[in-house]
C-alpha cells in the first residue's frame, strides 16, 4: 500500500464532509443549536436502552433517515464512513456471544443466545449514534457548530481553538502531504515506507515551520487590532422552525424511549393478520 494514501484519503475525506456542509437545504438552514440539541437527545435516548434491546431501537432510524432526506445527504458515503470506523466496536462486541451463551429465544430450530442479541443491539446503537453525529456535521459545517457550541456555554477560548484547528487543518494536511510525496519520490528502495528516523526529520521540520506560521498568524492578528480576545459576530436565530425541530424530535425520541411503539405497532399488525 502506498504510504501517502492514508493522508491523501483523510484529506479528501474531510473535504467531502466539508463540502456537503456548504449545501443549502432546509436542514442546512436550521440553527445549528437545534440540530445539536436534537442529536444529543437522540444519542442519550439510544444508549439508555438495556443491552438486549433491539426492537425498540429500530424506530430510532427514523431520525437519520429523515435527516438524510431533508439535507439531501449521500447515504452511501455515510455508510462507508460508518464501516470504516466499525472495527473497534465489532472487536469489543464480538465477545458478547462468547461470554453470554444463555439462550434467549428460539426461531424455529435455531436458538439465539443473549450474547448475539446484545451484539446485534450494540451494532444498531453504533449505527444510530455514529450516523447521527456524521449527519450533524455534514448538515451543519464545523465552524457554525463551534459558534453554536460557544452560544450554548462552551468556553470561548475552546471554541476559538476548535475554529483555528479547523482552519489550519487543511493547510497543514496539505503541507505534510507535500512532504510525504516529496519523500516517496526519492525513496526508491523502500517503496515509500517512512522509517522512524525519517519520520522524526519530517515531523521536526514540519513542527518548526508550524511554529513559524503561528508567529506570522499572530502578527496578522496584531496588525488588525487583536488584543487577546477573538470576537465573532454570528447571528443565529432560533425561530419557530428550530423550536419545532428540536422540541418535535425530542418529544418523538422520548416517546419512543418510554413507550414501546414498536411493540404496540407490531402487536397491532399481528392481530390484523
Amino acid at each position: 500500500m502506498c504510504i501517502s494514501s492514508r493522508i491523501d484519503k483523510a484529506f479528501y475525506d474531510i473535504g467531502r464532509l466539508d463540502i456537503l456542509a456548504l449545501a443549502d437545504t432546509p436542514l442546512h438552514r436550521l440553527d445549528p443549536r437545534a440540530k445539536l440539541l436534537a442529536t444529543l437527545v437522540f444519542i442519550v435516548c439510544v444508549v439508555s436502552f438495556g443491552k438486549y434491546e433491539i426492537s425498540r431501537l429500530l424506530p430510532f432510524s427514523l431520525y437519520p433517515a429523515v435527516l438524510i432526506g431533508l439535507g439531501d445527504l449521500p447515504p452511501g458515503y455515510l455508510a462507508k464512513k460508518l464501516i470504516m470506523v466499525s472495527p473497534f466496536v465489532i472487536f469489543i462486541g464480538i465477545f458478547n456471544p462468547w461470554f453470554d451463551q444463555t439462550v434467549m429465544f428460539t426461531i424455529g430450530p435455531i436458538a439465539i443466545s443473549g450474547g448475539w442479541v446484545s451484539f446485534a443491539s450494540l451494532i444498531i446503537r453504533f449505527i444510530l449514534t455514529v450516523s447521527a453525529a456524521l449527519i450533524l456535521i455534514a448538515s451543519t459545517g464545523f465552524a457554525p457548530m463551534c459558534m453554536a457550541m460557544e452560544k450554548l456555554g462552551t468556553p470561548k477560548i475552546f471554541a476559538v481553538q476548535l475554529l483555528m484547528l479547523y482552519r489550519y487543518l487543511f493547510v497543514l494536511i496539505a503541507e505534510s502531504l507535500r512532504i510525504v510525496r516529496a519523500h516517496s519520490l526519492r525513496s526508491f528502495s523502500r517503496k515509500g515506507k517512512i522509517t522512524y528516523r525519517v519520520f522524526l526529520q519530517i515531523a521536526g521540520n514540519l513542527l518548526l515551520r508550524t511554529i513559524d506560521r503561528a508567529q506570522r498568524i499572530h502578527m496578522a492578528m496584531l496588525s488588525r487590532a487583536f488584543t487577546g480576545e477573538i470576537k465573532i459576530v454570528r447571528q443565529f436565530s432560533f425561530g419557530y422552525k428550530e423550536w419545532l425541530f428540536a422540541a418535535g424530535f425530542s418529544v418523538i425520541f422520548i416517546t419512543m424511549r418510554s413507550a414501546d411503539i414498536a411493540g404496540l405497532l407490531g402487536r397491532l399488525l399481528m392481530e390484523i393478520k
Partner: peptide, 27 residues
C-alpha cells in the same frame, strides 16, 4: 497601516471570509 502578508493562509485565520474581514472592525 494595513499590512497584507505574503502568505494569505497566514492572514486569513478565521473560518469564513466574512468572519475574517470582520475581525479587524470587531476589534
Amino acid at each position: 497601516v494595513g499590512m497584507v502578508f505574503q502568505d494569505p493562509d497566514d492572514q486569513l485565520f478565521m473560518t469564513t471570509v466574512f468572519d475574517d474581514v470582520a475581525f479587524g472592525p470587531l476589534n
